[in-house]
Design a protein around this nucleic acid. Sequence first.
DNA 1: GATGCATACTCGTATAGACGAGTGGGCAAG
DNA 2: CTTGCCCACTCGTCTATACGAGTATGCATC
Lengths: 261, 261
Amino acid sequence: MPSLTSVLGVLDPTSDRAVFRQIADALREAIDKGRFREGDKLPSETELVDHFGVSRMTVRNALSLLQQEGLVLSEHGKGVFVRPRPPVRRLASDRFARRHRDQGKAAFTVEAEAAGSRPEVDSLEVKEERPSQDISARLGSPRKVLARRRRYLLDGRPVEFATSYLPLDLARNTPIAQPNPGPGGIYARLEEMGHRLDHFDEEIRARMPSPAEVRTLQLASGVPVIHLVRTAYDAEGRAVEVCDTVMAADAYVLAYQLPAN
Amino acid sequence: MPSLTSVLGVLDPTSDRAVFRQIADALREAIDKGRFREGDKLPSETELVDHFGVSRMTVRNALSLLQQEGLVLSEHGKGVFVRPRPPVRRLASDRFARRHRDQGKAAFTVEAEAAGSRPEVDSLEVKEERPSQDISARLGSPRKVLARRRRYLLDGRPVEFATSYLPLDLARNTPIAQPNPGPGGIYARLEEMGHRLDHFDEEIRARMPSPAEVRTLQLASGVPVIHLVRTAYDAEGRAVEVCDTVMAADAYVLAYQLPAN
DNA sequence: GATGCATACTCGTATAGACGAGTGGGCAAG
DNA sequence: CTTGCCCACTCGTCTATACGAGTATGCATC
């Protein structure tokens, strides 16, 4: 095995760059150059302390930088590893097209199985509640809404947490209020009930997750979330659903097609 | 002024939650409840040390947690502040519609001024180069491309860094190869040259910035980037441009409209 | 009044040491 | 062979201390 010096180099004591940044730079470069590959274990903190001749806090400082960048993840009792890039789920802009809605299964399940992954949906909760100010405004200020919460997992890993809100007068005592709304999902049910869907508006933000989101999505540090809010409009221009989705950003790429007009 | 104890509470020594997490929780809660507002200065590290009766490293550990979450930002010599939410730029899905293209000014400038901000475009670089594998594949494998790089600023703050790539056979010796391509931008020039634009594909990812991106966008820690890659197609189905854009995620919300088909 | 310095405050960087807790391998006992 | 324990190694948490560097303020000097 190659010596640590040949992989990581040495510190430049004349540099005004902070030592822990130099160490982070050395590790980052080694990872970029493929000297450490996805899933590889980095040298232990003790080894880095010995190699660079610095204190352990300095090494930990460097590693925490890389962790914030999402480059590595540390596992208690095992070591620090180059973070593997998970398979990415691609969301196409036609994913709600009517032609994708006839299957007996949910779109998420069909698509995941086609990609060779094992899909799961859990923590399904369906209840009536008072909408937040934001949701209320988007739905035309209904007094109460039906909220459908669920979490999506791929191969056991949570990747997405979504809540659909529908005006209660529209959803109460319909299949939409059931845990499983049936083939084609709630959009198929809405259309059966005479709300022909016209278009969707989507708003996309990216930010760091809240502690609660870190828990439910089991996010490694250094992984942002994509926050997507979709509003569905029927042919009369009424907002019939708002879907608030938080996705692990390292598991998704969103694709849209725009006309040039 | 209220006592620190009434604002932050005290530690629970019986809890198995790490002390620095308890401190972070206390500060987070105080911020959420509005006891510290945007731009407010948090108690100094020394004050927190005295209040909680812990060592400074523990306090710094707590603050660094909040910083990773994007909640606060620290300024050397001044203090730690609740991070102000910057004004957000909304990118609508019709932003490339032909009707927005007649102005003499660039779309970015018009839009920013309408929003009351002071727009700037800088570090404009136009050069011919060999495309990366990814860009090459998207453009139909041209041998060389014209690359147009620029950075956008709002009120002096960099918010976006973008590079447009065009096949060289299409762009060489045209206004597109000029630093300022003229009114309506390069899309207007492309259409004048007979490449009537048909549609755009956009791919969106979110991730933590690289160190280089932190520098050019002057990003605070805890701020992810949105990485957008747009491909423009003409009426013959040829990819005529790829635009690779990295945006400060706290400055943008992307909006799309999808037909329901 | 303007300039410049001293000072006190802020966070940034670094050292050295200690103990806790999760993991995995080896070894001894059953 | 299996079970269970010990041990070595890993990262996690915390203390105590020191000095450097950026900022703001006030005061003395010009």
